[in-house]
Nucleic acid binder design. Structure first.
Lengths: 151, 151
DNA sequence: TTAAGTTATTGCATTTTGCAAGTTCTGCAA
DNA sequence: TTGCAGAACTTGCAAAATGCAATAACTTAA
């Protein structure tokens, strides 16, 4: 029963919501991931090795289950994530980044760097420190890693 | 009368809303500008030479007046924008980017590049084409320009 | 066929957004 | 000094999105 609902949700997304506010690339991008949750899901899968609904749910920001389902559907509809049955556990789904999703990496890295620079209460972890030393190397290294893993 | 209200809005922002969802720098950044409008205001001032309330209001995405006031207050409270009387027209305010605001440039550029790459209906303008050729040069050129203008 | 793990839905309260209309403020010119 | 026009801001209401807690559906393996 809820599969049908899920498909409806995707359908609504494509039918009703496809109106971009303008043809500005920044505006169009924000139409897709301009909210407080989408890029955190991307972060989890991109930098923290999380792959499944239940793992995303455990993140410290405490996303609600309905919001998570909704965002996963949108990101899948937009071809940023793709969903498949886990090879390890056949009753489980795993999400992977498409090329389009992997290409969000520089945005995520820049946001992380800015956030760490201007928030005293945000400690830089390994990756944050590496970014300070050589940001473009971090990006190209992760790009290779993600391409190997998902691409 | 509305000046007092404006100060109240800022007060509410500082008192009530200062709860970051986590100490992750990405999450903290999104707590500030993770919505569909804030970065469009930044874009207008950063790349389009817009400086005032009435100019922001004219952008093609058609932000509502109450949302615009709210976001300007937040961005000012967060020390991303600063507000002053226009030297040209004393009955007018102009906003300028702080250092913290200028440092959003790489994020904005990366979002623009991604958006142009994955939206056929988003034509690349001059800056979009320059980004394809040499992104880091575009960033450093604009950084110089913005620093001279605002910094 | 049932238990355990995983994913999805629902209903309701709260918050945010969108929209349209109106208000206040400021400087300037008559 | 008054009135006007441009600019900035507020308000009220409807609509949409979010947050929360409880529940339901699905899948596989035993």
């Amino acid at each position: 029963m809820y599969k049908r609902y899920c498909k409806l949700q995707v359908l609504y997304y494509f039918c009703g919501m496809k109106k971009n506010r303008s043809d500005c690339p920044i505006s169009c991008s924000l139409d897709v991931f301009g909210d407080k949750w989408s890029l955190l899901i991307i972060r989890d899968i991109m930098l923290r090795g999380k792959l499944s609904y239940s793992e995303f749910l455990k993140s410290e920001e405490k996303i609600a289950t309905n919001i998570l389902v909704n965002r996963l559907n949108i990101l899948e509809s937009e071809n940023i994530l793709s969903k498949s049955v886990s090879p390890d556990n056949k009753s489980k789904f795993v999400y992977s980044l498409t090329k389009k999703g992997i290409d969000l990496l520089p945005i995520v890295i820049e946001i992380m760097d800015w956030g760490a620079k201007y928030n005293e209460n945000c400690p830089r972890r390994e990756i944050g420190k590496k970014i300070q030393v050589d940001k473009s190397k971090v990006i190209s290294d992760y790009l290779d890693k993600l391409t190997e893993e998902f691409g």
